Lab assay of single mutants.
Amino acid sequence: QKTCLICGDEASGCHYGALTCGSCKVFFKRAAEGKQKYLCASRNDCTIDKFRRKNCPSCRLRKCYEAGMTLGARKL
């Protein structure tokens, strides 16, 4: 079983350049394409896991970029 690099849930494949679950794939697409700016209410070090991935979109998006996700990457 492969694990999502963002939240640790079961990965569905390589999306936008990183091994992710469906939830993180859709989140990244919407967040990266959108005009909304996300700000962390804490210290930009929130725990992003399967159960808390929706708590801080700022840290989740940062983790996506750190994992190498880009909109230009093709699905592998």
Rank of each mutant, 00 (worst) to 15 (best):
Q1P: 03
Y16F: 15
C56D: 02
V26Q: 13
E33T: 11
R30D: 10
C24T: 00
K35V: 12
F27V: 01
C21I: 01
L19R: 13
A73I: 09
F27N: 01
A41N: 07
A18V: 11
D45P: 05
A31I: 03
C7S: 02
D45G: 07
D45E: 12
L71T: 15
C24R: 00
E33N: 10
Q1I: 15
V26H: 14
K50F: 04
A31M: 06
C46Q: 01
S23C: 06
A73F: 04
C64R: 00
S12P: 09
F27G: 01
R52Y: 09
S58Y: 06
A73K: 06
Y16Q: 03
H15P: 05
Y38D: 11
S23E: 12
C21M: 00
K29L: 04
I48Y: 06
T20E: 01
C14E: 13
Y65E: 09
K35I: 09
T20C: 13
S12M: 12
C4E: 02
S58L: 05
N55I: 10
K50N: 15
Y65F: 11
G17T: 03
C14S: 08
N55T: 13
G17E: 05
G72M: 07
S23R: 05
N44S: 10
G22D: 12
C4V: 02
A31S: 12
Y38R: 05
S58W: 03
S58P: 13
I48C: 02
Y65C: 14
S58D: 12
S12R: 10
Q1E: 15
C40Q: 03
S12F: 03
R74I: 04
Y38W: 05
R52W: 04
C7M: 00
L19E: 14
V26M: 14
A41S: 11
C4R: 08
D9K: 03
K29S: 05
G22W: 12
L39V: 14
T3P: 05
A31V: 08
C24S: 00
D45W: 03
C21S: 00
C46D: 03
P57V: 12
D49M: 03
L71I: 12
Q36Y: 06
K29Q: 07
R30L: 15
C24P: 01
Y16K: 03
P57T: 08
I48V: 12
Y16E: 04
A31E: 09
R52I: 11
A32I: 13
D45I: 10
G8C: 04
A31G: 09
L39E: 14
D9V: 06
L19G: 03
C21A: 02
S58R: 09
I6G: 02
N55F: 08
F27T: 00
S58N: 06
D49E: 10
S12Y: 12
G72T: 11
C40R: 01
D45K: 15
Q36D: 14
K50P: 13
Q36M: 09
C40D: 00
G17N: 10
A73Q: 07
K35S: 12
I6S: 02
I6V: 05
C24M: 00
D49F: 02
C64N: 03
D9M: 03
G72S: 09
L5D: 10
T3A: 09
I6A: 03
K50R: 10
A41M: 06
D9E: 06
C56P: 01
C64V: 01
T3R: 09
D49A: 04
C46S: 01
G22Y: 06
F27D: 03
K63T: 12
A73Y: 07
C56Y: 02
V26K: 15
C46A: 00
A73C: 04
K50E: 08
K63Q: 09
C14T: 15
A18D: 05
C7T: 01
S12C: 04
C64W: 00
K25H: 13
P57S: 11
D49C: 03
L5V: 07
C4L: 01
K25R: 10
G72A: 13
